[in-house]
Design a protein around this nucleic acid. Structure first.
Lengths: 351, 351
DNA sequence: CTGAAAGCGCTTACAG
DNA sequence: CTGAAAGCGCTTACAG
């Protein structure tokens, strides 16, 4: 059985309240230094650990923040966990990581002082009374976004997605395919919309490949499997515009399996800007999200909400920006790019 | 203010205990179906959420498992989180993710029902009384490993590391360098030891590159920076034996920057077997850890320990195995490998 | 079928 | 400088 303050009090023959004061130390001069020392020593020696549940019950604070993610099969989510873990560093908060599915099954009944929800859905009703902030993409309709029901960090891919598509078109690619989870294919979705508009403006034919994603698995594996089938049946596009980087990586796998080289035969452009992109060959062009800023903003909003629940719900928008690397370039651009970025590689001698 | 059972009881004019019974449902026929229904409806309508702290205090169970990791800057740790997240699926447990540094600062005072600690250190004294399992590498001395002070999943790289080194030597590489965090360089460390023994047996000169790692950063970035300096000063080895895959990926970056092609000019072999390895070019040879098995074993040990604290501490060993992909092959092996693994790529036409 | 009581371990205001 | 009391919200045995 764990040691309690009571145990320490009995052993020392003092009241159990005194022990509490001595251990927490916030009692200006109420306790003689000697008594305090004796109590602390005994606590140490008995291996006393405060019961967090009891403390949370009486203070109303657990010092836990729940981080609710759609799944863990996408690298991007790992980077989010890492960001929030960093943000806890100089705070007393711990991170409880949970999937959206479980969170909903639980009806939002969490032990934490607040919740950060990443996802495209809307805030669960249960959360409205508790501190929470959503990080999400725009909803199906613009009007739905106006309906703020809590603090929100809105992810905006719109401009960057247009730029990405214009870049692809400027490279001379004609058959450009949009690939991604089916959930990223609805009219108001910024990437989907940018794709549709630019393709139409350029007079090009659209081609959508919705990837069936099961939430337990890894996106890149599911994408790989699906694209292999798709390519077999429909041949290869000039370029692939992927709604996230894991999809793009799945596409790399599939294309490599067919012996198609990237980007000369098929160009690929991703979205999210996971750091793994720069370790791929070729390096992955992508729409980068300012992840550090996004997470820091959400964190600060949540902490403010926990401290004082007065202010009206806020919404902050964070925009992605296009980062062009190798995977989306035509042959000429690629040569130029290499001349600038990798002068040393030019001197490489093939055996 | 959150709604309590008391609020429901008052609104309905029943005792507050009755509400508790009605809501938890484990009172065989003690409550009339009608009353129960009314209570449940009111709870719903008031937005009642059980107070987890109160529940934990009285039951002595928080249904939280603390997962303690050295840091989050290594991809391998993300895969570990993912494994444990999967393991929680059909259980009532949530995962609290915490770094070792914080865990120690806290003196191990965690809210959870049990703790899983990944790392090479020893079990903190404070944990000995509470359910915990360590996943770790062998310690500095074999005798220290005998001293079981808790349930342990021991990671064994020994045989696989010998095989890896023999493979590298068989490929004809002479100057083989051992690179990795300084923490992976002590005499009894299986990889370090295997390296030393095989190099000595082959009459080759040893070369160690300890990478200075700060725990907040990402291993691959720190490795990259350090290896660029190292290569500038000492030139290039024939092969790099890295004590983890993130180090290997950092090496990829550095080598690429010098225009060195892998594996023809410098071969690379990693350790851990993160899934990202197969998306690299060339695909990464590595010592794969059976991560799913490791985590499942730790999870089951911990759950058993939480349910019944009787059995003596157990230790299970999980062994890594060598997976040879492209990055560690000499030119001839690589050609053979490609002929077998990627027949379609042979027909690829370079523009 | 229902109610009143005890207690989990802690913190915090209050009285000496 | 120290002690006794109240109460956080819940669960669980027990008495009607």
């Amino acid at each position: 059985m764990p040691v309690t303050q009571e145990d320490i009090a009995q052993k020392l023959g003092v009241s159990r309240v005194l022990v509490g004061y001595a251990l927490n130390g916030n009692s200006r001069g109420r306790i003689s230094p000697d008594t305090r020392r004796r109590i602390q020593e005994t606590a140490q020696q008995l291996g006393y650990q405060p019961n967090q549940a009891a403390r949370a019950l009486v203070t109303g604070r657990s010092y836990q923040i729940t981080l609710c993610l759609p799944a863990l099969g996408n690298s991007f989510y790992s980077e989010i966990i890492r960001q929030f873990e960093n943000l806890t560093h100089d705070t007393p908060y711990d991170l409880v990581v949970i999937t959206t599915a479980r969170f909903q099954k639980r009806g939002g009944a969490m032990a934490g002082d607040g919740t950060i929800i990443y996802g495209s859905g809307s805030m669960p009703v249960e959360m409205k009374s508790r501190p929470a902030v959503m990080i999400r993409h725009p909803k199906a309709t613009p009007s739905a976004d106006e309906d703020l029901n809590g603090d929100t960090v809105l992810l905006d891919f719109g401009d960057a997605a247009e730029q990405a598509m214009e870049h692809l078109i400027a490279q001379g690619f004609k058959r450009i395919t949009y690939a991604g989870p089916a959930s990223s294919m609805f009219p108001h979705e910024p990437r989907y919309r940018a794709y549709g508009r630019t393709m139409e403006a350029a007079g090009l034919e659209q081609e959508h490949v919705p990837i069936p994603i099961s939430i337990e698995g890894r996106i890149r594996e599911q994408t790989h499997a699906h694209l292999v089938q798709h390519f077999s049946a429909h041949g290869f596009p000039d370029a692939l515009f992927c709604s996230n980087d894991d999809t793009a990586i799945g596409a790399y796998r599939a294309l490599r399996e067919f012996g198609k080289s990237i980007p000369d035969e098929v160009a690929v452009l991703g979205c999210d800007g996971i750091s793994e992109g720069q370790d791929l060959t070729p390096t992955l062009s992508s729409i980068h999200l300012p992840l550090e800023e996004i997470c820091r903003t959400a964190w600060q909003m949540l902490l403010a909400r926990i401290e004082l629940n007065e202010t009206p719900p806020q919404s902050v928008t964070c925009s992605g920006h296009l980062v062009i690397r190798e995977s989306s370039l035509n042959q000429r651009s690629l040569d130029q790019h290499n001349a600038v970025v990798k002068p040393r590689q030019q001197t490489k001698t093939k055996p």
